[in-house]
């Protein structure tokens, strides 16, 4: 199922890009969330898919008999999920604060740091 999954990841990436190009900050952050999911899936897939058993050694054994799912990408993705969550949570709070302070969530109306037309020699 790698090929369909690759296509799905591509689709999600495209969708996320589209969202991130939005002038609406909330849509942008939705895009980040979607892209995060796409990238996590990609790492997971890049470690090769398997329908074999999960990487849990039976409690009475020293090692798993036969093939098992690749545990390393799982650990990486787990870390990435958490980090992505931390970043997203902060970004959402920031979006709220942007609304409180600037009165808008549209990024093309946020012109405080680089005011339009003020670039003069």
């Amino acid at each position: 199922m790698e090929v369909p999954l690759a296509l799905l990841i591509g689709l999600l990436t495209g969708v996320a890009t589209w969202l991130m190009l939005s002038r609406n900050l909330i849509r942008l952050l939705l895009g980040f969330a979607v892209l995060g999911n796409a990238v996590n899936l990609l790492i997971f897939t890049a470690g090769r898919l398997t329908r074999d058993v999960p990487p849990l050694v039976p409690l009475d054994a020293e090692a798993i008999e036969g093939a098992f799912a690749n545990p390393l990408p799982q650990a990486l993705v787990l870390t990435a999920i958490v980090i992505g969550f931390g970043l997203l949570a902060f970004a959402l709070v920031l979006a709220w604060q942007a609304y409180v302070r600037l009165g808008t969530i549209r990024t093309d109306e946020m012109r405080e740091a680089e005011p339009p037309g003020e670039v003069k020699p």
């Binding site: 991130m20 900050l25 942008l28 980040f32 892209l35 995060g36 990238v39 990609l42 790492i43 897939t45 890049a46 470690g47 090769r48 390393l72 990408p73 990486l76 990435a80 970043l87 902060f90 970004a91 920031l94 979006a95 604060q97 942007a98 302070r101 600037l102 990024t107 946020m110 012109r111 405080e112 740091a113 680089e114």
Partner: peptide, 27 residues
């Protein structure tokens, strides 16, 4: 706040590009 929004948004993109590259290289 305005600066932070732009800073955060663009750095989030960089972050995911990095992660994407790590995944591909690992693969």
């Amino acid at each position: 706040t305005d600066g932070a929004v732009k800073y955060v948004a663009l750095n989030l993109v960089a972050t995911l590009l990095f992660l994407l590259a790590v995944g591909l290289i690992y693969g």
